[in-house]
């Protein structure tokens, strides 16, 4: 019974990792940009949520409707003003610039909010549970987090394969030069992709901040979890990021059960194992 419980908890936390991963995969897929500041942007979203809840007195889960548009706007402007200038044949400039951005965000948050650990308080929902039978109880909050993650991934999948914007994303990803000949302004398309990525991050950041303590320095570890989930899942489908997140979450839960110090290590080992036996991930991109 205990192991069922552990695996269920791992699956549920996997939803959060999937949301970290989805934003990364989206950006890499559309513009081949590896966003090193991704984790710090997740933390930034958590702090924006903190300010929103403190000034407006909102429940963090309601604050999502405020934080998502703010983060999307930041994403659009960041891409138009800065990141578009780094894109080209060379993959190094965007890496360096987003690395620098990561440092800047961490230090700015440190200046503004100090290094104290903070947490978002979602109220009674945090301790509410439902019985799953056979002695297993599930927290409403992790369940909600997982349901939101599935909805976000499903939404991205529909957007990518069923809408005009998704078509523009895929065309630009395939061949930037020809996409421009179709009347697509790639600077605008990239900015919309970054806006979408940061909108997903906003949701993930709020759930992270309700679940656990956060401070300005925890971004890079979230980036690693996101990366690992992307690699495990593969780049063929948004559902891959969900599978990757779940594998990572379950591995960490099992590791933590064996020894609390092994939680993160077990996740890394699962990642390395998948990388060794199936380097293209669980849902590989089909070569056209």
């Amino acid at each position: 019974m205990e192991w069922i419980n552990i695996i269920v908890q791992g699956v549920l936390i996997g939803g959060l990792y999937a949301m970290f991963a989805a934003g990364l995969a989206l950006i890499f897929g559309v513009m081949r940009l590896v966003n090193i500041a991704h984790g710090d942007l997740i933390v930034l979203a958590a702090y924006i949520a903190l300010m929103t809840t403190e000034t407006l007195g909102l429940n963090p889960l309601v604050a999502i409707i405020v934080v998502v548009p703010i983060m999307a706007a930041i994403g659009y402007l960041l891409q138009r003003a800065l990141l578009n200038r780094t894109l080209g044949d060379d993959v190094l400039p965007p890496l360096l610039v987003t690395f620098g951005l990561s440092v800047i965000i961490q230090n700015a948050l440190l200046e503004l909010f100090t290094a104290d650990s903070r947490r978002l308080n979602a109220g009674a929902i945090e301790v509410a549970t439902v019985p799953l039978g056979a002695g297993v109880w599930i927290g409403i909050l992790p369940l909600l987090q997982f349901a939101v993650a599935v909805a976000v991934i499903a939404g991205l999948q529909v957007l990518f394969y069923r809408t005009a914007l998704g078509r523009a994303f895929r065309a630009t990803s395939d061949d930037q030069a020809v996409a421009q000949l179709m009347g697509l302004d790639n600077r605008h398309v990239f900015a919309l992709a970054m806006a979408l990525s940061l909108a997903v991050i906003a949701v993930a950041g709020i759930f992270l901040a309700v679940r656990t303590n956060f401070d300005p320095a925890i971004g890079p570890a979230r980036l690693i979890f996101g990366f690992e989930a992307v690699i495990i899942g593969g780049l063929g489908s948004m559902w891959g990021t969900l599978a990757g997140g779940i594998v990572l979450g379950v591995a960490q839960a099992i590791g933590a059960q064996i020894d609390p110090g092994w939680q993160v290590l077990a996740g890394h080992l699962a990642f390395l194992l998948i990388l060794a036996v199936r380097p293209e991930g669980l849902f590989p991109k089909v070569q056209g």
Binding site: R167, V178, A179
Partner: peptide
């Protein structure tokens, strides 16, 4: 002004119809 590029350069991730639709997206 529309260009039919050398070597065709269709979008491989898009179906035939999606390739046509994106040509008319303006």
């Amino acid at each position: 002004i529309a260009l039919v590029p050398e070597g065709r350069r269709l979008f491989p991730s898009l179906s035939v119809e999606e390739n046509l639709v994106i040509g008319g997206q303006l």
